[in-house]
Design a protein around this nucleic acid. Structure first.
Lengths: 152, 152
DNA sequence: GCTTGACCTCAAGTTTGCTTGAGGTTTTAC
DNA sequence: GTAAAACCTCAAGCAAACTTGAGGTCAAGC
């Protein structure tokens, strides 16, 4: 009868959490198996989640959108209270770290885009001069035919 | 005896191509199996690549850096000549399309970053107000306890 | 009180992009 | 002319992030 308690104490079944969080039930099972979330169990062994779990799953989803793999997300979530609302500080630290990750990813992609821009209409992919090519490739400019490599 | 010809006609063994392109031999086998590259064979059934393959592999690597999956890369490469240097036009079309893809990815990540910025120190992840949350989540604001959802 | 839908566990399957290994052949180098 | 290095094919394995399926239990409605 915990479900007759005030809403702050109400629990969610796995199906309810899945629907509200916008993920599949199997994904919640999976997250639990991976240790990203935990569940209480009824006498009949069915999962019940405190409402705060909705937020935790939301945090997982946001982190995934940044491109972070689940095991890193798990590390990050370890800093959050298991089933209670995270403090402002918790969240600030987390989101600031993720922001930096994201920023780095954005910088890498932007650099690549700018290089592509520079190479559109060039098409050289020159072993020695093209910024799109791995710098290590320059090492290959040895032996017979080296004078032609730039044309290849 | 093709290897006694001028360099433009020299071929590369799979090991040479791998080393110069900076990929593993197994990756080249894999690309061939997936139809991204092709190979000539010696009498003894060993792979030989025209030098232009070096560029093709370079193009594959650049495309991968943009985050494009191999099957899309394969589609894109289908527009390029199989073993000869692509025309400036070929390359311009390709790289411009990839640039747009990249740009879209960058925009999505940037938007996410800005949302994170806005939410650092907030931490609400509010079902109804937080831009980080899926808009669909607002639908869940029904039934008993709805007035408290924003606190969860 | 019974049917039906939601749940449970555990194992296996899926996709992407490769790598590793087994068992055997070709080339190259001395 | 032979030993070692490089190559060949095909099958299986790996990691991530889940999904699907089999076989069985729980709970809620009528």
């Amino acid at each position: 009868m915990p479900d007759t308690c005030p809403s702050a104490f109400q629990t969610l079944s796995v199906g309810e959490l899945a629907k509200r969080a916008g993920v599949a039930v199997s994904a919640l099972h999976f997250y639990e198996a991976k240790g990203l979330i935990r569940s209480l169990r009824t006498e009949g062994n069915q999962r019940r989640y405190p409402r705060g779990m909705l937020r935790r799953v939301a945090v997982i989803k946001v982190a995934q959108r940044t491109g972070m793999p689940l095991n890193e997300i798990k590390q990050a979530l370890a800093a959050l209270p298991d089933d209670r609302a995270p403090s402002q500080e918790n969240w600030r630290d987390l989101s600031a770290a993720w922001r930096d990750d994201l920023d780095a990813r954005i910088r890498r992609l932007t650099q690549l885009r700018d290089q592509l821009d520079g190479c559109i209409g060039c098409g050289c992919l020159s072993l020695t001069a093209c910024p799109l090519r791995n710098p290590d490739d320059a090492l290959a400019a040895q032996g017979p035919g080296a004078r032609l490599l730039d044309e290849i």
